[in-house]
Design a protein around this nucleic acid. Sequence first.
RNA 1: GUGAGUGUAGCCCAGAGGCCUAAGGCGUCAGGUUGUGGCCCUGAAGAUCGAGGGUUCAAAUCCCUCCACUCACCCCA
Length: 421
Amino acid sequence: MQYKAPRGTADILPEEQKYWRYIEQKALEQCRRYGYQRLDTPVFEDAGLFTRSIGEGTDIVTKEMYIFDDRSDNRLALRPEGTAPICRAYVEHGMGSLTQPVKLFYLANIFRYERPQAGRYREHHQFGCEAIGESDPAIDAEVVTMAWSFFASLGLNGLMLKLNSIGCKACRPAYLERLREYYISYSDRLCPDCKVRMEKNTLRLLDCKQPSCHGIAEAAPRSADHLCKECNDHFTAVRKYLNLAGVPFEVSHRLVRGLDYYTRTVFEIQPPGEGAQTSVGGGGRYDGLIEEIGGKPTPSIGFGTGIERIVLNLKAQSVPIPPVSGQDVFIAYRGDDAKTEAVRLAAILRSGGIGTILAFGDRSLKAQMRQADGSGCAYVAIIGDDELQTKSVTLRTMGTGEQQSVLWDNLVSVFKSLQLH
RNA sequence: GUGAGUGUAGCCCAGAGGCCUAAGGCGUCAGGUUGUGGCCCUGAAGAUCGAGGGUUCAAAUCCCUCCACUCACCCCA
């Protein structure tokens, strides 16, 4: 085969579409209920937007971005995440002068140059929400609640909501210092990766997957115990509101998030079962991000979810997915004159809003019926010599095999009265 | 970037040195008398056995290289 979809990308085939439509529809419904408006941004942005916001030292920036110069030597990157572009649009369009918070959502494809594996692709899709311009802990709780109810509405079971606070730029440095000191005393017992993390990304030490590091991480100083008064009050309030909303969360002091811009509230939604991907969605507060990319200081919080991972979980749990609605009637014909009439009737039916599939290729009626059966149409309209005489079709109900004669002039109105799909 | 596993028709797969002129199932197409689907029956099309090289009288089967896919690590949705 000469051409294949690039590594880590995938075609979403017709038989897969029902999952995607289902998820989109649930996402749209949650956004309506919570008051989020859609904002679509370009697939590529100035690369600097991401290096600045995500963090110069993160893997996403250092080795996973699809980055390129265009013909005018602009350094561009395919978006490796969804939050920074939304924030850029917020700043660019002066949304800071609107009533705050501004609540936006996106459904977008995301690109990261990684080795693909289950639930991880070079192009994947995210549904995400951002509530920009509000520091009230009540909105943290609302965002978390929305994410949670989105997953609940999908019909997924056994999900876990993990919550933590990682402080702000005032209190985090001191905590990180404590953490580093703690880890130094165990440095000889750490896995090789963790030795690197000590220098590169101290917080990440906490969620190491190696069993040998679990005990050390479990006993490590907890960020929630080292918050400044403001952050502590905030975290306390978030938990209070979440309890009020009836959201079953679990505080996890080992929950950290990968991107540099997070502050205070962070959360993650974890699917049940084994597997590499430990998260189907997550988010947090990013109070410094908008200022970092050139806006005024603007407290914000949001979350993102991976559509492919949701599909994986829907399949794993065999969640029933409604089929996408199909066609209503298949037109079969016998002979040239009948074919002419079939073409004419198909046009009339479609103009009348009836989903119509027309047979092609002058194949035998048996072959046409087989095709009709496979097409999922509930009805087949057959035209042959007899029907031409009476200006009618033989309308067969595939489920029951019953047939009736319907005049051409009455076809559309008959179908309209049949309560299709 | 690292490690392991797998590559045979559109899909699932049998075959593990000669009996392979590569089997079966699904799907596709055609037929089972003259205008009718689903079940059943019959038949047909469809495979340079991932690519290249090597060993051998003989390779889908053994060896090497490459490529791709899958899973895991790193990281993340």
